[in-house]
Amino acid sequence: MKNTIKVERAKKNWTQAELAEKIGVSRQAINSIEASKFVPSTVLALRMAKEFGASVESIFQLEETDLV
């Protein structure tokens, strides 16, 4: 799964630490999610989308390999 967290962060001019604080996770967790190493839970994805003022689908997109 790919994501546009880095782009959304850049739009808001937020660091990973700032985003982490807003959604209540560690900076390392944001780093891991941003690098597509970890797929967040629905709650966390929704929390993130809410902070960015965007939809979850616009932040997280399935890749070819994720499709059944």
Partner: peptide, 11 residues
Amino acid sequence: RKYNIDHEEHD
């Protein structure tokens, strides 16, 4: 290492 936790390039 798997979850990139120690990777410090973050901003």
